[in-house]
């Protein structure tokens, strides 16, 4: 090994190579941003309500029980396709009503069943959250999840 490569050579390969891969990564990142903006998330309009729904999702740390697009905690169901699962993915009013019913029923208090907290969301917050889920459901995620179970 000593004959094949000196420390200086190893160092130069490290710096040079890393720089190369960073540049490639940044170029692909730029292309991906454009793909997201122009291709994969254009099937539904990103309204102000959707943006507010995302805040509701974040402020209540939903990701620390649920997954969204497969990322998060694995304690509670996947929610990217929740509106699909509930059969209301093309019906904003229905989506709101089902979600409101669900949120108001928590926690279930059933013994031996995982509990979702009562978040005391306002009607407007629930509407925004429902719109957020409807929007997320329309992201083109290369066919993931494999089925309705999420």
């Amino acid at each position: 090994m000593r004959e094949v490569m000196t420390k200086t050579m190893a160092r130069n390969v490290f710096y040079g190579g890393s720089l190369f891969f960073i540049v490639v990564f940044l170029i692909l990142s730029a292309q991906s941003v454009s793909h997201i903006k122009n291709v994969s998330t254009v099937h539904s309009e990103l309204t102000e309500s959707v943006a507010k729904g995302k805040r509701v999702w974040e402020e209540n740390a939903c990701i620390n029980c649920h997954t969204l697009m497969g990322e998060g905690a694995y304690f509670a169901p996947e929610l990217q396709n929740v509106m699909n699962r509930w059969g209301v993915d093309d019906d904003p009013e229905g989506a709101f009503e089902v979600l409101q019913g669900w949120m108001e029923a928590q926690p279930s208090g059933i013994e031996g069943r995982r509990q979702m907290p009562q978040f005391n969301l306002t009607e407007e917050q629930i509407r925004d959250l429902a719109n957020f889920f409807l929007w997320v459901n329309k992201i083109d995620a290369q066919g993931w999840p494999p089925n309705e179970a999420g």
């Binding site: 994969s40 697009m69 992201i139 290369q142």
Partner: peptide, 11 residues
């Protein structure tokens, strides 16, 4: 970047 709305080449 497989399933979050990013391009397919990432696979």
């Amino acid at each position: 970047y497989y399933w979050i709305g990013t391009p397919g080449y990432w696979q």
